[in-house]
Amino acid sequence: MTDGDGLERSTRADLNKYPAPPAADAEYWQPYDPYTPYNGDPLAGLDQPYPPYPVAYPSSPYPGPYAPNPYLMAPFVQAPPKTNAMSTAAMVCSLVAIPGVFMCFGMALAPVGVVLGIIGLGQIRDRPNESGEAQAWTGIIVGGLLTLLCVLIGTLWFAFALDGL
Rank of each mutant, 00 (worst) to 15 (best):
K17E: 15
L121N: 07
L148S: 05
P22T: 08
P61N: 03
P58N: 12
T11N: 04
I124S: 08
Y28G: 14
Q48Y: 08
T138P: 02
I153G: 11
G4D: 15
R125Q: 12
D47W: 07
L72F: 12
P52D: 11
Y50G: 11
P19L: 11
D47M: 14
C93G: 00
V151Y: 01
S87Q: 00
M91K: 05
W29G: 02
T36G: 14
G117H: 06
P21V: 09
F158D: 12
A136W: 00
F158A: 15
S87R: 01
F158Q: 13
A26K: 15
V114M: 08
Q135E: 04
G144H: 04
D14H: 10
I98D: 00
V142A: 14
P22A: 13
P34E: 12
D33V: 05
W137D: 02
Y71L: 12
K82E: 14
L109V: 04
G117R: 10
R127W: 00
L145P: 02
L116C: 08
T36N: 15
A159H: 03
P54V: 08
T11E: 05
A67R: 10
L152K: 01
L121C: 05
P42G: 06
A110N: 05
P128T: 02
W157T: 11
I118L: 09
A79C: 09
G106H: 02
Y50N: 13
T147N: 04
L146C: 10
L165S: 05
R12V: 15
G120D: 07
L95R: 01
P70W: 01
G64H: 06
L146M: 10
P111S: 08
A67N: 12
L121D: 02
G122D: 03
G64V: 06
N69L: 05
A44G: 09
L146P: 03
L149R: 04
P70K: 03
Q30C: 03
E27M: 08
R9E: 14
I119M: 14
V142I: 15
L162V: 11
T83N: 12
I140G: 03
M1L: 15
F105V: 07
W157R: 10
N69Q: 08
V101F: 03
V115M: 10
S60L: 02
L156P: 00
N39W: 02
V112T: 09
S87I: 01
I140R: 03
N39V: 05
L46D: 08
Y62H: 12
F160V: 13
A79G: 12
N39S: 10
L121W: 02
M73V: 15
P75D: 15
L148G: 10
G154C: 06
M1S: 15
G139F: 08
L46P: 02
